[in-house]
Amino acid sequence: MKKSVVTAVLLAAAAVAATPALAHPGHADTGLAAGMLHPLTGLDHLLAMLAAGIWSARQRVASGTPFRDPSLAQRLALPAAFLAMMGAGAAAGALGLQVPGLEGGIALTVLLMGVLIACAVRLPTWAGAAMLGVFAVLHGNAHGLELPQLTSAAGYLIGSALLLAGGRVLGKLPGARFAGAAIAAAGAGLLAL
């Protein structure tokens, strides 16, 4: 069986196993280590970070030629925008401000990112950064509400950066579109909860 099919099956199985309790367990621990592990403890956050990395790795920058390979700065623009806006959302959450419809919005980001990957949607860098920024504010807001301490915030930004980097590696594999379909299915499952 191809690796891409196995990956898709595993992600789909994870979506079926998703429950609200798995999505946001209690967070008694705080600090850098707790923050770094936080994006791994909820299926919604885990899949969103991986999906953002996968999708950003599959983008090309429109220029004088139809699509050219992006420069290092352009390759980092989308993950950097995601992390910056995640930090802004986390700061708002730490101050007690909650985005309305947060849980549904987070699940919707997982669904939409999966669809974008599965359908190989490409956007100009500015549009991709804006879209990922909105998605990241939601995820950051949830993190900030759950772990408002500064050391925890540094931890989940590091953990999220590592997941984005892992997603970028996955995005270069031939079966990334199958993974996108599985992520979309997981997002649909999360919305149904």
Rank of each mutant, 00 (worst) to 15 (best):
Q149L: 10
V134S: 12
A154L: 13
A127K: 04
V115E: 01
A77H: 14
T125L: 15
L108E: 00
G140A: 05
Q98E: 15
I117Q: 06
G93N: 02
L123T: 11
A77P: 13
A94T: 05
R75M: 13
L145T: 09
Q149F: 00
S152A: 15
A142I: 00
L145H: 03
A153N: 04
G133M: 09
P148M: 00
L102D: 03
Q98A: 15
V134L: 12
I117H: 14
T125S: 13
P100W: 12
A153L: 11
W126I: 07
M131A: 13
C119V: 11
L150H: 01
R75H: 11
V134F: 15
L132N: 14
S152M: 02
A120K: 12
P148N: 00
L97I: 12
H143P: 02
I106W: 02
A94Y: 03
L138C: 01
V99Y: 01
S152Y: 02
A136Y: 10
G140I: 01
V110M: 12
E146S: 14
E146C: 01
L76V: 08
L157G: 11
A127E: 06
A90V: 12
Y156S: 10
N141M: 01
L150W: 08
T151A: 11
A107T: 06
A142E: 00
M113W: 14
L145S: 07
I117D: 05
H143T: 04
W126V: 13
G155E: 07
A81Y: 02
A92H: 04
Q74R: 15
L147V: 12
G140C: 04
P70I: 07
A118G: 08
T109K: 08
T125M: 15
A107E: 09
T109H: 06
A88S: 11
L83N: 14
A77L: 15
V121C: 07
A88N: 03
G104F: 11
P79Y: 02
F82C: 10
L97E: 08
L116R: 13
A120S: 14
L138T: 01
L123C: 12
T109N: 15
L76R: 08
H139S: 10
C119Y: 05
A94D: 10
A90F: 06
L102Y: 04
L123W: 15
L157T: 08
A73R: 15
T151R: 02
P79E: 04
G87Y: 09
L78R: 13
L112D: 04
Q149T: 12
L132S: 11
L102Q: 03
P100H: 05
L78H: 04
A80R: 03
C119H: 02
P148K: 00
L123I: 12
R75W: 14
V134T: 11
L72C: 06
A94I: 04
A130F: 09
L97K: 09
G96W: 10
A154Y: 05
M131E: 06
S71K: 09
G96P: 10
A91Y: 13
L123G: 08
A77G: 14
Q98F: 00
P70H: 09
G89V: 08
G128V: 07
V115Y: 00
T125I: 15
C119S: 14
R75G: 12
I106Y: 00
M113G: 09
A92L: 15
P100G: 06
L72P: 02
A127Q: 10
A84N: 04
G93H: 07
G144P: 10
E103Q: 04
V115C: 01
L102G: 03
R75P: 14
A77C: 12
G93K: 00
A90Q: 08
M131P: 03
L102I: 07
